[in-house]
Write a protein that binds this DNA or RNA. Structure first.
Length: 491
RNA sequence: GGUCGGUUGGCCGAGUGGCUAGGCCCUGGUCUGCAAAACCAGUUACGGCGGUUCGAAUCCGCCACCGACCUCCA
């Protein structure tokens, strides 16, 4: 009943019921980061989207092998140093070994993903560690006659491919349209057609990252790594391939073409694409230079930021939009997410204090069904979250006595919310900065002040009362008079 | 130019042919010595023009605007 997940398949442009190729097992491949720059807000979208998918599939009882690559070779840079590997360029700029740069940004990526509570994939292979596998694919495609060698480089013959298969199937492109729109790129003259893409590229003399091959000293084409690594770890045919919409063409299209020839089958059954985060209505991206790094976001150290935003705020912000919609960044939107998340988590934490009644006034199963229905509908996290806010309302009503839950229902409600909030959405409660976490001395001092204030209050000595509150606030300690006594917290 | 997608209230963002997600903001209320917080309640919307329909924000057509991809990008 809970196993009727449907996902939007880019290949068919429809929502399809998810059925794994091998019962109880799911193979998931997602295009990971290119590690030549600090991770930015844009990187969080696929990471969190597919983290949600990973978590939910596991919740449903599937054994999931999630492969997310690290791109540390290839990807030509398109500027004055045309044809030069991005990573090599950056490395020389900073006088570092290429692999040193790669290691640094890989570590940074991992650090920030941990903070965002993104679970580690099952396997995180590096392109540079799979040169042999990539060369095997090049050879295979050459042998089958769908590639040609030209001046030490090897190109995929798209026209030949298209005569038998459909090139453009995923992105809805037609070959004749592509003819007129491809612009001048390095190596264009070596190609038979402008839309052919490189499987192996001969390295220019100054190119540092290079590997020997029978064609030339060079490096693999920029789509090949995913074909090689997905096939190696998930098989030639696997369940789900994910990535950002910006990779749809040409990256994923080329991947399909390569794999189809090399393995004689289309690699993935379902293709999922997350949309972009926009800023002022425009895609946030490396090339536009309008990105905000995660470090800047978490520290608030950026001119566009009015404040710092916690990793959980970012996570919640992303989950509040459906993954296939664009999500517009703004301080206002992030602050709204921050407050909403706080309300959700505060209320969730109050659950433990509740006591059960003899009977229930609300149907827990109804809430559960609605939440699962939302998830099953192409991972509709915003709808799921809207139902969780219904749960917040219920918790508040339970506290005020306007609603009741039996012990069975209450326990079920608690474990259900833990499952949804913590395990599936991956929202972790912020460190509880209540008195319990502070040292005894501070607790004692605060207790003393609170008691003094209480005495002043009893004497209607409002001046002393307010002085204690105001001056503590100036130091950074906030007092709140609640019904159950005085609470304090460090701001 | 080609392909694809979008246009929802002050902001972010869901969605279905009729029963007006949700969050934030705002307003009112409860609580409070005051305040804050918290809680409760409430308001505002579907780019424009036609069409289909008993009924459309939801389907169709045209127009306008915005964006993505076509080059590395999550």
């Amino acid at each position: 009943m809970q196993n009727t997940l449907s996902i939007y398949n880019t290949l068919t442009r429809t929502k399809e019921t998810f059925k794994p190729l091998h019962q109880d097992h799911v193979g998931l491949y997602v295009c990971g980061p290119t590690v030549y720059g600090d991770p930015h807000l844009g990187h969080t979208r696929p990471a969190i989207t597919f983290d949600l998918l990973f978590r939910y599939l596991k919740h449903q009882g599937y054994k999931v092998r999630y492969v997310r690559n690290i791109t540390d070779v290839g990807h030509l840079e398109n500027d004055a140093d045309q044809g030069e590997d991005k990573i090599a360029k950056k490395a020389r700029l900073e006088q570092l070994e290429p692999m040193e740069v790669v290691q640094h940004y890989t570590d940074r990526y991992h650090q920030f993903m941990d903070e965002l509570n993104v679970q580690k994939p099952s396997i995180e292979p590096r392109a540079s560690g799979h040169i042999i596998e990539q060369l095997q694919i090049v050879e295979s495609i050459l042998n089958k006659g769908y590639a040609y060698e030209s001046n030490g480089s090897v190109y995929f013959d798209v026209e030949k491919y298209n005569s038998t298969y459909k090139y453009g199937e995923l992105s809805g492109r037609k070959l004749e349209d592509l003819l007129s729109t491809t612009r001048e790129l390095d190596g264009q003259s070596e190609k038979r057609n402008s839309f052919d893409f490189a499987l192996w590229k001969k390295a220019a003399p100054e190119h540092i990252m290079r590997w020997p091959s029978k064609y030339s000293d060079g490096f693999p084409g920029w789509h090949l790594e995913c074909s090689a690594m997905s096939a190696k770890y998930l098989g030639e045919e696997f369940d789900i391939h994910g990535g950002g919409m910006d990779l749809l063409f040409p990256h994923h299209e080329c991947e399909i073409a390569q794999s189809t020839i090399a393995n004689e089958k289309s690699p993935a059954k379902y293709w999922m694409h997350n949309n972009m985060i926009t800023i002022n209505g425009q895609k946030m991206g490396k090339s536009l230079g309008n990105f905000i790094t995660l470090e800047e976001l978490f520290t608030g150290n950026h001119e566009a930021l009015e404040q710092a935003y916690s990793p959980m705020t970012i996570r919640f912000f992303i989950l509040q939009a459906h993954y296939r919609s664009t999500l517009d960044f703004s301080n206002e939107a992030l602050q709204a997410a921050e407050k909403g998340l706080k309300r959700l988590m505060d209320s969730y934490q109050k659950l433990d204090k509740l006591t059960a009644s003899k009977e229930s006034s609300h149907n827990i199963q109804e809430i559960k069904d609605k939440c699962f229905a939302a998830l099953n509908d192409d991972l509709n996290s915003p709808i799921l979250i809207s139902h969780l806010f219904e749960a917040v309302k219920l918790i508040n009503n339970l506290i005020s006595g306007d609603a009741k839950l039996s012990e069975t229902d209450l326990n079920e409600f608690k474990s259900f919310l833990t499952e949804m909030i913590e395990n599936i959405l991956g929202l972790s409660a912020p460190a509880n900065d209540n008195t319990s976490d502070h040292n005894e001395v501070l607790n004692g001092a605060l207790e003393l002040l609170i008691n003094l204030r209480r005495d002043a209050k009893a004497n209607k000595d409002w001046a002393t009362c307010d002085k204690i509150r105001d001056e503590l606030k100036a130091i950074g300690i906030e007092l709140k008079d609640t019904k159950d006594g005085v609470e304090w917290s460090i701001k």
